[in-house]
Amino acid sequence: MKEDIKTDALLEVLNIGAGQSATALSEILRQKVLINVPDLKFLPIDKVTESLGGAEQKIVGIYFQINGDITGKMLLLFDQKTGHMLAEILTGDKTKREGKLSDIDMSAMMEMANIIANSCLNGLAGLLDMRLMPSIPYYAEDELGAVIDFLLIEMAIVSELAMLVNTEMSTEKGNIKGSLLVFPDDTFMNKIFERLELQKT
């Protein structure tokens, strides 16, 4: 099954990218930041919501369109509590956060996500020998189902599978777990599998 394909090569480039993001974030935050990508999987688009804890899970998400030689969509998401903790780490502002994050928090989250999105696409671009770049970031905070319904709509038309990448970030002020959801269009997905098949030998 396509989903069972060996993903080592992919994990490798994503971890290299994660390292680059961590270095940049360490510089910006003036504290040691480490980012690790322990695993990833391919799954049918209609299983995504379930995999992430169900439609009612409150999440913080930053969305990017993938542009370049191939296209797709990408969403970096955290459960709400983790997202708020991350905002605190990024801004150094310990005020308790009620409801949606403030503009300053959102801005900090988008900057961080921008670095992660860029390094992730750099890695994929290198692996696939293509040009890829992310759009500017777009922010959402609400129930998972409501945030991703448009993604399910748009991407189910062009692809059966999505890629779910687990990410772990550790800083001096706390550890963060997040998910990077990548929805490549069909061409993109085929290129990924082609490349992974080649790497198997």
């Binding site: 270095t23 940049a24 801005s107 988008m110 900057e111 921008n114 860029n118 390094s119 500017i136």
Partner: peptide
């Protein structure tokens, strides 16, 4: 080398 840009 690795270079990133901030959100425009």
């Amino acid at each position: 080398k690795t270079v990133f840009i901030s959100v425009p």
